[in-house]
């Protein structure tokens, strides 16, 4: 087995390399703003912070476990049918998440509607399984999954916070903008609730991020 060789250097659970796996995707290697993966769901469910929070947690759970399972199975999966195997693993995990959400937070589950199911086709998960879990050991894969899902979740929460605050003056359903502001003529920006503004918000986030990290600028 080729695995014995990669096992020999005994690493600590949170060595510098493993920490990097966890922290890189949140910042410099963010799946959404840099790798352009998994954008579909970011945009549609970010009207409210609460729904986004539930979504982010679901994705972290699915992705962590999918990476672990694929990493455990990586020597047993024939390469030709690996996509089907991956999809089956992800779909089973998503079914679990969907049932849990329906049982405990039914109203949010209604609000997310088809987007829970669409975690299956979230490109981040497939992308990380292909690029990382298929060729790495279990623990790094788990960290990589959690890290990427957290990077995804952080953008999700940021966009949702901006949209909910500007669009309806609330966060998590609690009113933030005080009433006297409305009395003196402040008006919620109704455009922020509409879907296209999610795209523009993400565009601005990318702008800010690349402005601060000139090495990320797309030269083409």
């Amino acid at each position: 087995m080729s695995d014995t060789q990669e096992n020999t250097p005994k690493e600590k659970l949170f060595s510098a390399k493993n920490k990097k796996l966890l922290s890189d995707p949140i910042g410099k290697d963010n799946p959404i703003t840099i790798q352009v993966l998994g954008i579909c769901s970011v945009l549609a469910i970010t009207v409210q912070l609460k729904a986004s929070l539930v979504m982010a947690i679901s994705v972290v759970a699915v992705m962590g476990f999918a990476n672990v399972i694929i990493s455990l199975l990586r020597h047993g999966i024939p390469p030709r049918i690996r996509i089907i195997v991956q999809l089956t693993v992800i779909a089973s995990l998503v079914i679990l998440v969907d049932q849990v959400l329906k049982a405990f937070v039914y109203d949010v589950s209604r609000q997310l509607s088809v987007f829970v199911g669409l975690i299956i086709t979230n490109c981040i998960i497939m992308g990380r399984l292909e690029a990382f879990a298929l060729s790495n050991k279990v623990w790094p894969s788990f960290l990589d999954g959690i890290g990427n899902a957290a990077g995804y979740g952080s953008i999700l929460l940021l966009v949702a916070a901006v949209r909910e605050l500007l669009g309806s003056g609330k966060l998590m359903g609690y009113q933030i903008i005080p009433n006297f502001m409305y009395d003196i003529g402040y008006v919620d920006n109704g455009l922020m609730i509409l879907p296209p503004m999610a795209l523009i918000t993400v565009g601005v986030i990318i702008w800010v991020q690349r402005n601060n990290n000139p090495e990320l600028v797309d030269v083409s």
Binding site: P196, L199, I200, W207
Partner: peptide, 23 residues
Amino acid sequence: VPAPLRGLGITYIITGLMGIAFM
């Protein structure tokens, strides 16, 4: 286009504007 917006960023913003038009 401003350098940090090139590529991905401007595409998002254009898509947003197209979305507003489609609305």
